[in-house]
Amino acid sequence: MSSVSPEPPTTSVTPPGPRVLDVRDLQVSFPGKGWRTPRVEVLHGVSLDIRPGETVGLVGESGSGKTTIGRAVLGLAPVHDGTVEFLGERIEHVTNRRRRRLSRDLQVIFQDPFASLNPSIPVGDTLAEPLHAQGIPGQEARRRVLELLDRVALPADAAQRLPREFSGGQRQRIAIARALAIGPKLIVCDEPVSALDLTTQRTVLDLLLEIQEQTGVAYLFISHDLSVVRYMSHRVNVIHRGHIVESGDAGQVTTAPRHPYTQRLLLSAPVADPAVQRTRRAALDQRRAEENA
């Protein structure tokens, strides 16, 4: 495990071309708890990039720093060092005013559909928020809200209801509608389906794919689940303890990983086929034995 960090990441070089997002050597650290304790660094120089209309997956376990990358891109976590370039503009340290204008092109879908919607505000008002923030007048905003609800297959009367009247999957659709409101170029999807049931998860993922095909939006897709990331992403980055240890095409990284950590991640996920799972388990046991030897 400790041998993981120093190894150079197994990276496939991305071809040249325009980038929606270009993150270079990103370092994020938080103040330590207590007086004069050193800062705790959670990202130790992370680089990744996303092309227009592309989904780049970011997979890792809890505490790996995958959520922090998304939050740093959104300006919700402090960038200590490195650069974040969005549509050709450095955004790691921008003013609040500029950051508000960025919201037109850069949006988010959070993991927890129960916490990401204000429980006391009707869904329609929540959806109208980004529209108002961009100065779209009331009448026009109302019309757009109905369009958005239709876009994510929710009934029009949902606008008057409170979040608690919706299931997890429906709430996540509302969160997707909010992210889509202004037609962004990039949406950071932070574990968007991990709180959902299996079948609901599939429909939400399919909705995201469908939206991407229609609008050409790019996704930074953060998840702990390799199979979800494989389904969604063109390219995948594997993050472990604040380092990206492997990155490459989704097919290669999620089926024939090169880095030992990714291999262990893949072998650890049980598959819903007893025969396949038996061989996978045997391979994992063998790995463990080798590691212990």
Partner: peptide
Amino acid sequence: ELYVDAARVSGLRDRRIIARH
């Protein structure tokens, strides 16, 4: 709360976030 983060990402001003949320 995530919904305050979401409001910030939506481009709302602090004043408005405080008043609404």
